[in-house]
Design a protein around this nucleic acid. Structure first.
Lengths: 130, 130
DNA sequence: TAACACCCTGGAGCTACACCAGGGTCAAGT
DNA sequence: ACTTGACCCTGGTGTAGCTCCAGGGTGTTA
């Protein structure tokens, strides 16, 4: 399969797929006579695997670990568990942070919703001291 | 005030303050004979304002708009309201996305918490197809 | 043979900084 | 006078995960 077909199949852009190759996430595919990349079905499956991981916002370094488990390079799936656990923990922390931010911004939003002279805007005033 | 003092006062790193200067967020300060930056109290207030905005995760381009309102360059505070509204909206969308992600990851976490042979790990299996 | 869709490489740009090397400055202590 | 240590300077590189671009080759169809 050519890169454009993979792109359509996975929803990743062509640039992204090339980027994954350059980052060592996927093996360098065979090339046609004209130099076009030619992906076999294993490669396609790997790329789809990666796309699924990215849709869960798993960072590339972590995906590499998952790929090691997937390929059987790792002897157990412990690393996969670790990756998911860590990601989930970070995500939950992040959500808490964002909720705090939401409160702060909502508070800020509430203090002025008119078109005042800048000097009188309580948003700006609040941001001075907070 | 020298940059190190500002740094301690605001909690921003020295690099960050220099970065704000380079990005045009703050005016270039006067220099002492030896070439050290020397910030006056207006500059300090501006930097604190920026620090407060960043603590709310407002991006630098948006902070520029707020600074225009703050300085009275804008005639009303409409832009400030817009910035806060937009940020809040984006934030709420982001929180929703992250909650979905959390569900997905939690689901994934639940399917395997052992040390299995990689072939048998349901985390990996799930990531194949999703 | 022209048009058009597709592919290639290498490099720059994005965000908001952090970090580094290599060098100057300044005040205090000996 | 000299050294030490804390501070400051500039310019450049690195981070994550891509996106976009220029300048060029390839392949198929009319």
């Amino acid at each position: 399969m050519k890169i454009g077909e993979i792109s359509k199949k996975t929803g990743l852009t062509i640039d992204t797929i090339r980027f994954y190759e350059k980052s060592g996430l996927i093996k360098r595919p065979l090339r046609s006579e004209s130099g076009y990349r030619d992906f076999n079905s294993d490669a396609v499956a790997a790329i789809e695997f990666i796309a699924h991981c990215r849709s869960l916002d798993i960072p590339i370094v972590e995906i590499k670990k998952l790929l090691n488990v997937r390929s059987g390079t790792a002897k157990s799936c412990r690393q996969a568990n670790e990756v998911i656990n860590e990601q989930l923990e970070k995500l939950r922390i992040r959500i808490k942070e964002l909720k705090k931010l939401e409160k702060s911004l909502a508070q800020l939003q509430s203090v002025c919703n008119e078109e005042l002279d800048p000097k009188d805007c309580r948003i700006i005033q609040s941001l001075e001291s907070l």
